[in-house]
Design a binder for these strands. Structure first.
Length: 740
DNA sequence: TGGATTCGCGTTTTT
DNA sequence: CGCGAATCCA
């Protein structure tokens, strides 16, 4: 039943105290909130108040009694985003927590569904969720069982391929065997099927399966009852960051929305930066075709950045071909131009950034409102060193996540085996941690038995301890381990889960192992274990905790103190700062050579979107820099400015470089007319490497440089076939070599 | 079995 | 260069 929406019209005085739902919304935003029926795509540019629209829309649905919380399915990409949405909607609802709606990430929602219907795909409802590390190890096991050469065929490549198939919504039977390509001796498809079979034996699922299984269930006519139930349940669907969806996620949504057709997707095609992990920009570009009758609402007024910054960003992104097209505008005035600076090397770059940071500080700007956004994490080091030197407090965001730490994964492995003893990957992880004298030989014996009988490792331990096949010492160790696990299992229902975890870690000797460890990071690891146990309190039981830990756990960054943020561009999506520094704009580093090599124009366009994301993080000031040479893997590598530097509209930037360093847009390229050089040629079994080392001119400065180290150059007669893997060397060398 | 040593390679990161 | 993994050797 629809309530009269007129009564919430902005013109009408509201009767409740929290009436400001529509206050200050511009017409497009208001339209995006109020268009409730039919498919809607809200194309929301950077800083256009997307979050506001999204939460207002949800609050509006609830307040007007158009939907109950249980009838809303809201999907985000990160748990953080889900949490934020929950809080903000509650706030709009007058501080009352909103419960009962299906809010979460694609994976958490699918996992929740799959728990209820696991039997339809042959799983128990207490299945374990494997992370990417487990996936690789499983792939490795299967390849080894096939007698394949792990060195020639990296298991990681197979695991990635399987994940990518899953992201595309493909199960083994959807694939022809020739889709294996060269991968895994052409057996990739076959191995995928085996992999799935093995997962079933282990009563386990990987991340991709969560969605894939649900799609399989929904598609099967025999399960029509299930899909109908969800159709009845969900009246309104809402998806944030739609540009980041992959095919499987799209299919899942598609199936769920069939009935109501009330889907509202919010996203920005210009901020799609996760193509490398399966996101399909095409999903958002195709929206109107996929959902006939869809309405597209553009949010183009940017409330974040000043004019020059926005125009610079618009100029860069304008070079992309595949766009839905929108041009952001601001009414905040021109502000300052974007500063572009060329420097000699990465240390000079760090020094310069810090000078500017300190200059801003003297103007009264706060460190917490500044960020350095890099393309790759190795760039961070130069900045960290300089920050420490000058005593500028900083915080690195990102890095290995909490649950990916060794000690956390070990602890979880103990819990996983306790909950679900067929979890081989978990058991293998901790079977000899702490050291129990169970080495590879023993584990191989166990695995051989397990495979032959098609049973789990745990079961196979049980079998073998009933025989005399094992050495007495090994046998008694294994029996002790089995006893331990059986005892812990019996405690699951009677003991509080955090207490049980402590017991397990103590009795297994795991805690003692770290206490005895004298390495400097051991105390930190013990701390992390404590934190893990503390975080268990938030969950009802071990089962729920393990599910969330696999999907959720995040190290909460305490937002205390005044520090500058150092992170990757990817990590910065959705954030904003007064001042943003974007170092390392060199061809090959940014745009990354690998993106371009692997994905061509598509890769380049994604890199360009990353540039766009970077520039638009700033409210008042953006600084961009590039260097002439940079240390990479121990050797100094020369580079030229990123093509993105040249794409910045001249009228919105101020460019200044070290004397003699190549400046984009100025006439002189470096002059290599009179170089002196040495060529060293070394021939090995695999390749021929030529190193060209010499002195030559760049502008008015004489440079010494070395090209070709670690790269392969074939010289045949006059023709040069240069196969470069590294950075922007190629373009430099091209012009250089011409003169040789 | 496990400590020592060499080897190989090197984006982005969420679930 | 620096780190984790594979491999070597006692």
């Amino acid at each position: 039943m629809m309530m009269d929406s007129e009564m919430f019209d902005i013109e009408e005085p509201e009767t409740t105290p929290e009436t400001g739902l529509f206050d200050g919304l511009n017409p497009s935003q208001k339209e995006a909130v109020e268009t409730l029926n039919g498919p809607v795509l809200v194309l929301a540019g950077a800083g256009t108040g997307k979050t506001r629209v999204l939460t207002t829309r949800l609050a509006y649905l609830l307040k007007s009694n158009t939907a109950f919380p249980g009838q809303i399915l809201a999907v985000t990409f990160t748990n953080k985003a889900a949490q934020e949405m929950k809080e903000r909607v509650s706030h709009l609802m007058g501080g009352v927590p909103v419960e009962g709606w299906w809010l979460g990430t694609f994976h958490s929602l699918a996992a929740r569904m799959l728990r209820r219907h696991a039997d339809r795909v042959g799983l128990d409802s207490n299945y374990t969720i494997l992370d990417s590390d487990d996936q690789v190890r499983l792939a490795k096991q299967l390849m080894e069982a096939e007698g394949m050469d792990i060195k020639k065929n990296p298991p990681k490549a197979l695991a990635m391929k399987i994940s990518s198939w899953k992201d595309k919504g493909k199960i083994p039977s959807d694939l022809k065997s020739d889709e294996s390509g060269d991968l895994a001796d052409g057996k990739a498809v076959q191995l995928y099927a085996t992999y799935q079979q093995r997962l079933k034996t282990l009563n386990a699922c990987d991340f991709g399966d969560l969605l894939l299984h649900m799609i399989t269930i929904f598609k099967d006519p025999a399960n029509a009852d299930i899909l109908e139930d969800y159709h009845r349940r969900f009246k309104y669907l809402l998806v944030d960051e739609y540009q980041d969806t992959n095919v499987a996620q799209y299919l899942w949504l598609r199936l769920l929305v069939q009935q109501s057709n009330n889907i509202c997707c919010v996203g920005d095609d210009d901020q799609s930066i996760y193509g490398w992990r399966g996101a399909e920009v095409d999903n958002i570009l195709r929206f109107e075709k996929d959902f006939p009758g869809a309405k597209m609402i553009r949010l183009e007024e940017n409330y974040r950045s000043t004019g020059h910054i926005l125009s610079a960003a618009n100029g860069v992104i304008g070079n992309n071909g595949n766009r839905l097209g929108k041009e952001l505008f601001t009414s905040r005035g021109d502000g300052e131009k974007v500063t572009v600076r060329g420097l000699w090397d990465s240390n000079a770059e760090a020094r310069w950034v810090c000078e500017e940071v300190e200059a801003l500080q003297t103007k009264g700007w706060s460190l917490s409102q500044m960020a350095v956004l890099v393309r790759t994490s190795f760039q961070m080091r130069a900045f960290e060193e300089r920050f420490i030197q000058l005593g500028i407090s900083y915080k690195v965001i990102g890095g290995p996540r909490f649950y990916e730490r060794q000690e956390i994964r070990d602890a979880l492995a103990y819990l996983r085996v306790t909950m679900q003893s067929h979890d081989d990957l978990a058991l293998e992880r901790i079977i000899n941690k702490p050291k129990r004298g169970l080495g590879d030989a023993t584990i191989q014996t166990l695995y051989t038995h397990a495979r032959a009988k098609n049973i789990s490792l745990y079961q196979s331990i049980y079998d073998l301890t009933q025989t005399e096949e094992l050495r007495p010492k090994v046998k008694s160790t294994l029996m002790k381990l089995m006893d331990d696990f059986e005892r812990w299992k019996s405690l699951v229902s009677s003991t509080h889960h955090s207490e049980l975890a402590t017991t397990i870690l103590d009795e297994s000797g795991y805690t003692a192992m770290w206490k005895a460890d004298k390495s400097p990071d051991a105390p930190g690891r013990l701390e992390n274990l404590k934190e893990l146990i503390a975080s268990m309190e938030d969950f009802e039981d071990l089962q729920q905790f393990l599910e969330h830990i696999a999907l959720v756990l995040d190290n909460q960054n305490k937002n205390t103190g005044d520090y500058i943020t150092l992170m990757t561009l990817h990590g910065a999506k959705g954030l904003e700062f007064d001042a943003v520094f974007l170092p390392g704009w060199e061809d090959g580093l940014f745009p990354s050579q690998r993106s371009m090599d692997e994905s061509g124009v598509k890769g380049l366009e994604e890199e360009r979107r990353l540039a766009y994301v970077g520039i638009t993080r700033a409210r008042k000031k953006t600084y961009i820099s590039y260097v002439g040479s940079r240390y990479m893997y121990g050797s100094l590598v020369s580079s030229i400015p990123s093509r993105f530097v040249e794409e910045l509209p001249k009228e919105h930037i101020e460019i200044e470089t070290e004397t003699g360093l190549y400046t984009p847009g100025r006439s002189e390229h470096w002059d290599s007319s009179a170089p002196s050089y040495n060529k060293t040629r070394s021939v090995s079994a695999r390749s021929e490497t030529v190193i060209i080392e010499g002195t030559f001119n760049r502008g008015d400065r004489v440079m010494h440089a070395k090209f070709g180290e670690g790269t392969i150059i074939h010289i045949e007669g006059q023709k040069l076939d240069i196969n470069f893997s590294k950075s922007g060397q190629k373009r430099v060398l091209d012009s250089f070599v011409e003169k040789l």
